[in-house]
Amino acid sequence: MAFHEVYDSIYSKDLRNEPKKFIEAFNRNQILIEGQNISNDKLIYAKVTRLKSDYALSIAQTGSYNKALPEIEKALSLIKEHPQGKNSKLLGTEHYAELLFARGVVNFRGKQYKKSIQDLGLLASEFPENEKYTSWLKNANAYKLYRLERAFYFTIVTTLFVYLLFDGIHYLLDRFLIVFFAACLLSIVVLEIIKWRRTKTS
């Protein structure tokens, strides 16, 4: 079956709404799809880009985040590195925003909150009216703060344990610990205020 026939067959069956079936169809024809010359043919470039983008998104939808991430990166690179992508506003390019959002979600699921916030923040900034983007960005920020807050609690508990364990050196630690605990507690209060303000403005 020729490339264009494969493409038409996949999309005529509306497999995009059935991620597992789309993945199976792509895998069956992967050699043919990967072998297309996209350099000088805009139509083939558009079709290959759509196939690879939808393939990456389908993998993400099945929850296979470790497998999805490299495929998302490949699809994004395909869009960015092609002359058509270089000469246009990327977020306005078909599939690009959707792939960026998928990468943000995948990184969020993988607890890579900083990376997730970068993608989601870019989308929320560009499309502030899109509740999906802004909602996910708030969640990512909240989880990032939560992890930071947990780190403070862990540090306090660990230090208290060491303090109680080595009773003989209390006199050396007293002043340091007072300042240290005050700084940790102040940081926690600041984090809570930040979370409260973000919740209030949401």
Rank of each mutant, 00 (worst) to 15 (best):
S187F: 02
I156P: 00
Y143F: 14
F180P: 01
K138V: 14
K89L: 03
G104F: 09
Y146Q: 01
Y96E: 12
L173Y: 15
A183M: 13
L164V: 14
Y163N: 13
D167T: 01
L177N: 11
A142F: 15
K86D: 06
I169Q: 10
V189E: 01
N107D: 12
L173C: 14
E126W: 13
T159C: 11
V106Q: 07
Q112G: 07
R150T: 02
R103S: 04
I169P: 07
N87C: 06
K132G: 10
S135A: 15
N130R: 06
S116L: 07
A142Q: 10
A140E: 05
L191Y: 15
R147K: 15
A124C: 10
G168M: 09
K115L: 10
R109E: 09
I117E: 03
L148R: 02
F166L: 09
V106I: 15
K86A: 06
T159D: 11
L99I: 03
L191A: 11
L173R: 14
K144A: 05
A182Y: 03
L145N: 04
L99V: 04
A97W: 10
E131Q: 08
G85C: 05
L177F: 15
D119Q: 08
F152P: 01
I178P: 13
E94Q: 13
K115R: 08
G92N: 13
L191S: 12
F161R: 03
V105H: 07
Y163V: 09
N130C: 09
D174H: 15
N107L: 10
R147E: 14
L100A: 15
V105Q: 14
L191M: 15
K114I: 06
S116Q: 09
S125R: 03
L137K: 02
K89A: 02
E126L: 07
L137G: 01
V190H: 07
R175A: 11
F154K: 07
A124D: 12
L165C: 11
Y163F: 12
A182M: 06
K132H: 11
Y133E: 11
L122F: 03
P128C: 03
E149V: 01
A142R: 12
S88M: 07
P128E: 02
F108K: 06
L164D: 14
V179K: 06
Y163H: 08
A142C: 12
F101V: 08
L120I: 13
E131C: 04
E129A: 07
L90N: 04
L137P: 01
E131Y: 00
F181S: 04
R109A: 05
K86R: 12
F152I: 14
D119V: 07
A140G: 06
S88E: 10
Y171N: 13
R103T: 00
G85E: 06
V157G: 05
A97L: 09
R175D: 08
K138Y: 15
A182K: 04
S125Y: 01
E94N: 12
F180E: 00
F101T: 05
Y143Q: 09
H170C: 02
G92K: 14
K86E: 08
W136T: 01
L120C: 05
V157E: 05
W136D: 06
A140Y: 03
A182F: 04
R103C: 01
I188E: 00
Y146R: 00
S135H: 13
G110H: 07
G92I: 12
Y96T: 11
R103G: 01
D119L: 04
L186V: 15
K111I: 07
S135K: 14
F127Y: 00
A97Q: 09
